[in-house]
């Protein structure tokens, strides 16, 4: 079983080494090893130098693509190298490596094609629940997904998600690069893939900036809602 962590990184010079070290530590402790690939999305700081100096497995995008394009590069890499499971993992230390097991479990058991790590399912565990505004945004997007796909996804913007071989292929060929997390979920659901959620806890960002800023969030919400509706309209049913 080959597992790949896709780590998109944009200006993450303070975090990226730490993140890779935790993965190496995880591999020492666990039998199921995980590979990782850092996608350097045209960072303007010293991220690339750090990746090269420490010989971390990385792909350096020759131009900035944004999170969606960076993650798709990871899926293409996973597809080319025939990985069985690909997991999106943030380069800013927000995600906890120890949940990789949990997030892979439904896929290994064949219960799901994609598994999303959700912040909101288990309230007691999570130290970082995120702000009110973010919750509100997530709820609205959830509502839209429920209306179009008839499936409850409590944390549609979570970047911590694992996909099996079919999902990797699907994403490598066609990935919504504009609003990747919610849109890709809708596309998969509409194509008849099984999507499950497992509770995870996330850490607060230790450095760097979140890609969603407050003043942009209204604009983001409108466009994501529109994207979900459009995606749900022209998604094709997969022959399974």
């Amino acid at each position: 079983m080959k597992i790949l962590l896709i780590i998109p990184a944009y200006n993450e010079q303070d975090n990226i080494l730490k993140v890779c070290k935790t993965i190496e530590k995880y591999n020492e402790k666990n039998e199921q090893k995980v590979d990782y690939v850092v996608i350097n999305d045209g960072s303007k700081d010293k991220t690339l130098e750090i990746l090269q100096e420490n010989k971390l497995n990385h792909i350096n995008l020759i131009n900035n693509l944004g999170i969606g394009g960076a993650v798709q590069t990871g899926y293409k890499y996973a597809y080319n190298n025939e990985y069985d499971i690909a997991i999106q993992f943030d380069g800013d230390g927000q995600h906890d490596i120890n949940y990789v097991k949990n997030i892979c479990e439904p896929i290994l058991k064949g219960q799901a094609d994609m598994c999303i790590g959700t912040r909101y399912l288990d309230k007691s565990k999570s130290e970082f629940q995120s702000t009110f505004m973010r919750r509100l945004g997530s709820n609205i997007i959830s509502l839209f997904i429920k209306m179009t796909c008839h499936k409850q996804i409590t944390d549609p913007t979570s970047g911590f998600r694992a996909g099996n071989k079919q999902v990797i292929k699907e994403f490598a060929l066609d990935y919504p690069t504009e609003y990747p997390e919610p849109e890709s979920t809708v596309c998969l659901l509409k194509s008849g893939y099984k999507v499950l959620e497992v509770p995870v806890s996330m850490n607060e960002r230790t450095g760097g900036k979140s890609s969603i800023r407050l003043w942009k969030s209204v604009d983001y919400m409108i466009k994501v809602s529109l994207a979900i509706i459009i995606d749900s309209m022209n998604a094709r049913k997969k022959v399974k």
Binding site: I59, N63, Q72, T73, K76
Partner: peptide, 13 residues
């Protein structure tokens, strides 16, 4: 353009 950047970057790697 996105596709080109991705493919070139993967090739370079």
């Amino acid at each position: 353009n996105v596709k080109l950047i991705q493919e070139i970057s993967i090739l370079k790697k």
